[in-house]
């Protein structure tokens, strides 16, 4: 085979690839996001949760439809054609929804896409019943998921962008720590406040240490080199972190 023939064969194979997997060829595939969501759901089952896949009206589905592009919460009026989501439940007061690519509206009014979010189910049902729209309610966990070449390192800008989104969703974050004492005798420290969603940056690539430092300081966590079949271990760490840190009633 000559050089030219090898390049022609490459061109033909690239065309076939782009035809069969057009989104993947453009770098807009959703398979990584879908895999992370399903893998986390599996791990939550091992923690005593039940997981259901439902349409926008709450009916169980055999085919789970996911958003390709960022989109608001759908109405419950067209369950046959709207995106679905997962519902996780541990007990009657612990019911949450997992959504891929849902639009959130920040305090500024700007719309943001979050790759994977976990939100309270009751508020989700109410929004769908009201006709849908961007999510403005409380968010337990927000995931930024990046399926990049595993040998590359994600730019710090991705961590900064996630921080910016989190700030717009929850600009009034308050953390108060109070030292309590009686007649100069310390009795201990108390902390309370209102916090935003727990932030997760999960990627198949590497991360720069500054990205991890930035997110950990801002109620977040990073997980690098998370790859199907090759390195799925960090997913269990994510679930442990969610159960420990998310301000949801697990």
């Amino acid at each position: 085979m000559t050089d030219a023939e090898a390049r022609r064969a490459l061109l033909k194979a690239a065309r076939a690839f782009a035809t069969k997997m057009p989104d993947v060829a453009k770098g807009k595939g959703r398979a990584y996001e879908a895999w992370v969501m399903l893998a986390l759901a599996n791990l939550l089952v091992t923690k005593g949760f039940t997981v259901d896949a439902v349409d926008s009206a709450g009916n169980p589905v055999r085919r789970l439809r996911l958003r390709k592009k960022p989109a608001p919460m759908p109405s419950d009026a067209n369950p046959g054609t709207s995106p679905g989501h997962l519902v996780i439940r541990r007990h009657i007061y612990c019911e949450y929804e997992l959504h891929l690519g849902m639009q959130h509206q920040g305090e500024s009014g700007a719309l943001h896409e979050i790759d994977l979010t976990i939100v309270p189910a009751e508020a989700g049902r109410w929004l769908r019943k009201s006709g849908g729209g961007p999510w403005r309610n409380y968010t337990c966990c927000a995931f930024e998921l990046k399926a990049y070449d595993e040998g590359s390192s994600l730019d710090l800008g991705i961590g900064r962008a996630l921080m910016g989104v989190a700030h717009d969703l929850n600009p009034g974050r308050i953390d108060v720590q109070v030292s309590v004492g009686r007649r100069a005798r310390p009795l201990g420290d108390m902390s309370f406040g209102h916090d935003g969603p727990r932030l997760y940056l999960v990627t198949s690539a590497h991360l720069y240490p500054d990205t991890t430092t930035l997110l950990e300081w801002n109620n977040g966590a990073t997980f690098a080199s998370v790859i199907p079949k090759t390195n799925e271990g960090p997913l269990a760490d994510i679930v442990e972190d969610m159960l420990e840190h998310c301000r949801c009633w697990w």
Binding site: P22, R30, V51, A53, V61, L64, K68, T81, G132
Partner: peptide
């Protein structure tokens, strides 16, 4: 309870606006 029934995952082609969902042309993944 119903249990988990999903056997396939699909990606909706038109989802910039919920009103555009037409249910057709879905690309299957999984």
């Amino acid at each position: 309870e119903s249990g988990f029934l999903v056997k396939e995952v699909t990606i909706l082609p038109h989802d910039d606006d919920v009103s555009e969902y037409d249910g057709g042309g879905e690309r299957i993944v999984g």
